[in-house]
Design a binder for these strands. Structure first.
Length: 558
RNA sequence: GCGCCCAUAGCUCAGUUGGAUAGAGUGACGGACUACGAAUCCGUAGGUCGCAGGUUCGAAUCCUGCUGGGCGCGCCA
């Protein structure tokens, strides 16, 4: 709709240029937006104001010139008004809006699907938790965010691949092995010393028990036993992580192991390529990459003087490898505490000629958990943290996802477990789901009376005349462009707000009928009832599609 | 000390990339079910958009400087 309006405006401007009504200049950036004040029409543009300086005329004069010469050949518009300091406000004819409603009901679960991202191939890397412990709240937030973003991207025509990078090389897996082995030994020898910086959670003991059931660790040398515990522990934790994610409705296309990266020649090859470009040098027995001058504030060590590669080395290799796999864009979702790594990763990429925009890093701020009015402080070191699994058990997947997706990922999130646990109106997820269930309930009621959602509703604009009814369609018409914007701004939380608003429109509309029976959806007039059922089906469709993109169920009953 | 993020109603947060009178939820108070689901709706109250400048037709939004909070600045992982 916005595009059609834009086309009318551009045709008009061209015409004004040709006729000398406006002096021919370049067209500045302008917007066509949906005003927040309904009195300002369905759409408004600031075009006259942006033209004012190059035209050297008053915005109001320009607005009048545009209005008087408007080329609305398809008769899209109901009214055109000049307002304020130089806005033009437009109203679209009801028939046009009703046409959109018909489209929605016709294409159903595909409404909103578009090809904005065609030709793009995006790799989204998220969660990427170390397999040294269970997923906790913070991982959950990243999982919900990444998953929903991927769903939206692919709905908008992007080729999307979801990847989980497994940090399974080096010290931390070793430490996992030592921690597990220690717990095993402590079964017989309670004084056996626990490794410094080891993992304290109860799950370590569970791992020790499970592993010792499968193999007799006493048959192995201590070193072999630790390695065995590390390998086995990694495998089991990864399995658990996969189970949790799958239950959280998050699927990955690829699991990329850092260990494999070390085993393959990739790390060496990558370093060789960087060396050829002249970005590597040796100093104090270590190998450095020259990232300073490429946006980083100092150079970074890639191989320590003890011969071990740093994690940063594999990070570079991994990201360059993503690039070589032919992705046109990469998105990483990291915890905000890693933000300091962005400049050095980008610097390393640009050393290989990869542009800055290729990689977008989304940072998620931390999650604070509240229960009983108190903040629950979490510490992985001390083993006191709430796992994603516990949270799903407690409050359910729908509620957890909704809360995570409600807020901008750049804002810290307070997760009030008591509030989310409550199965009543205080819980925000039910508001949207209830609207869906309520519509389904109306359909059941109508069917019982022999009235169904019509396949061909006829001339809707004759029957859908209430302002509330047309407001629905206008809101629904914005769904596809909202999704496209989310793909650019990477802000999935806007979908959550959109759905809440749409549900609010519906609840308000529904309640009109409790006062005035003529405003009920099911009325004595069959044709009117069918038109309203058709409208309700449109609303239901958009809510269902939106919830599906959020990974949240759209229940028919609650 | 340097860098990134944040600051909007009592609380938790939106704010359509610079638009017209800054909005929800929650909490407080008052209303609406003998017909489509009250997990809902309506009303009242609540604001110097952290502070001070600047940019322009126009600023919560952009720029600069402060204040306050979170995080990060290793040959750690």
């Amino acid at each position: 709709m916005k595009n059609r309006l834009d086309a009318i405006l551009m045709t008009t401007i061209d015409y004004c240029f040709d006729q000398g009504i406006l002096s021919e200049t370049s067209i500045p950036e302008y917007v066509i937006e949906i005003p927040n004040n309904p009195a300002h029409g369905h759409f408004a543009t600031n075009l006259p104001m942006t033209l004012a300086s190059s035209q050297r005329r008053r915005p109001l004069d320009i607005a009048k010139a545009i209005k008087d010469n408007l080329k609305d050949e398809e008769e899209l518009l109901e009214s055109v008004d000049i307002a304020g300091p130089g806005f033009i406000n437009f109203k679209i004819r009801a028939e046009e809006w009703c046409g959109i409603l018909s489209d929605i009901v016709r294409v159903k679960e595909n409404y909103g699907r578009n090809d904005a991202g065609s030709g793009e191939k995006v790799l989204v890397e998220f969660v990427s938790a170390n397999p040294t412990g269970p997923l906790h709240l913070g991982h959950g937030r990243g999982a919900a965010l990444g998953d929903t973003l991927c769903r939206i991207l692919s709905f908008c025509g992007y080729g999307v691949e979801r990847e989980f990078y497994i940090n399974d090389a080096g010290e931390q897996i070793r430490l996992l092995g030592e921690s597990v082995f220690c717990r095993f030994r402590q079964i017989y020898d309670p004084d056996y010393p626990f490794p410094k910086n080891g993992y304290h959670g109860d799950y370590i003991l569970d791992l020790a028990r499970a592993i010792s059931r499968e193999a007799d660790l006493n048959d192995l040398s201590q070193e072999d036993a630790i390695i065995y515990c590390a390998q086995k522990g990694r495998e089991m934790m990864l399995e658990e992580i996969k189970e949790d994610l799958s239950r959280f409705r998050v699927a990955f296309d690829g699991w990329y192991s850092e260990m494999d990266l070390h085993r393959s020649a990739l790390l060496q090859d990558t370093l060789g390529a960087i060396k050829e470009k002249g970005y590597l040098y040796e100093k104090d027995g270590a190998l450095w990459i020259k990232t300073s001058g490429l946006g980083d504030d100092k150079d970074r060590v890639i191989r320590k003087s003890d011969g071990q590669f740093t994690y940063f080395a594999s990070d570079i290799a991994y990201h360059l490898q993503k690039y070589e796999r032919g992705f046109t864009k990469a998105i990483d979702i990291w915890g905000a505490d890693h933000h300091g790594y962005i400049p050095r990763i980008k610097a390393s990429l640009s050393a290989q000629g990869v542009s800055d925009e290729w990689l977008s890093v989304m940072l998620i701020q931390l999650v604070k958990l509240w229960a009983g009015g108190q903040e629950i402080r979490m510490s992985k070191r001390a083993g006191t943290f709430v796992t994603l699994r516990e949270l799903m058990d407690d409050v359910g997947v729908d509620a957890v996802r909704f809360v995570f997706l409600m807020k901008n990922h750049e804002s810290p999130l307070d997760f009030d477990i008591d509030l989310v646990k409550k199965e009543d109106s205080d819980n925000p997820v039910y508001y949207v789901q209830y609207a869906h269930a309520r519509i389904c309930s109306i359909f059941r009621k109508a069917e019982a009376e022999g009235v169904f959602v019509p396949d061909n509703p006829g001339d809707l604009s004759k029957h859908l005349v209430l302002e509330e009814e047309l407001a629905f369609i206008r809101a629904m018409a914005g769904f596809p462009s909202l999704l496209k914007e989310i793909c650019v701004t990477l802000e999935p939380h806007r979908l959550t707000y959109y759905l809440t608003d749409l549900a609010a429109l519906f609840h308000r509309y529904f309640n009109l009928g409790t006062k005035i029976s003529d405003h009920r959806i099911i009325t004595g007039d069959k044709v009117l009832t069918q038109a309203r059922l058709f409208l309700a089906e449109g609303v239901r469709t958009v809510i269902a599609n939106g919830l599906n993109l959020l990974g949240i169920e759209a229940p028919e009953k609650m």
